[in-house]
């Protein structure tokens, strides 16, 4: 079975999905990623789906689950690079990817995570330096 590689860049985990994933590969990625978030203590996850020519309900659900899991582990997930045809198809399919943040490309995704993280730091410094759960 193929495995999707997870790269660590600074405080961010970058997952670039390059293969037509089987369902099993998708589930494996979900597990691997949860482990890596805990191991590295990263606060941001970028999932790059530029190379995916379709996203069906299974992969859609995987993306939602990853977002939820990483939220629990205090990491922000951004899905980047969705192709127009994929987005149009998802809308028609009725899949809304609730709770997932998206950006056009990796660069914008990083900005998004940096901004979210900066807000959090500001908030902690301004109000209560010891605050653990400071999501606005």
């Amino acid at each position: 079975m193929e495995r999707v590689p997870i790269l660590k860049i600074g405080d961010i985990l970058l997952v670039s999905i390059q293969v037509d994933m089987s369902d099993q590969t998708a589930v494996q990625l979900q597990e691997d990623l949860a482990e890596r978030i805990v191991d590295t203590g990263c606060h941001g996850v970028i999932i790059d789906i530029t190379a995916l020519d379709i996203v069906d309900s299974f992969v859609g659900r995987m993306l939602s689950t990853i977002a939820s899991i990483s939220k629990v582990l205090d990491a922000e997930t951004v899905v980047v690079g969705m192709r127009p045809a994929v987005a149009i198809t998802l809308v028609e399919l009725g899949l809304s990817l609730n709770g997932i943040r998206t950006a056009l490309n990796v660069e914008r995704g990083m900005e998004l995570i940096a901004a979210a993280h900066a807000d959090e730091l500001d908030y902690q410094l301004d109000d209560d330096p010891d605050a653990e759960t400071a999501t606005p």
């Binding site: 037509d20 020519d53 379709i54 996203v55 069906d56 309900s57 299974f58 192709r83 127009p84 045809a85 994929v86 149009i88 198809t89 028609e92 399919l93």
Partner: peptide, 28 residues
């Protein structure tokens, strides 16, 4: 199945969006 459907969809010259739609449906 996805790859097979994509090949055929390209062969009959479906638009990119239509290719994506039919491959997604086939996957489901």
């Amino acid at each position: 199945v996805r790859q097979l459907v994509r090949t055929v969809a390209v062969a009959v010259k479906l638009s990119l969006v239509d290719q994506t739609k039919v491959v997604t449906a086939a996957s489901e």
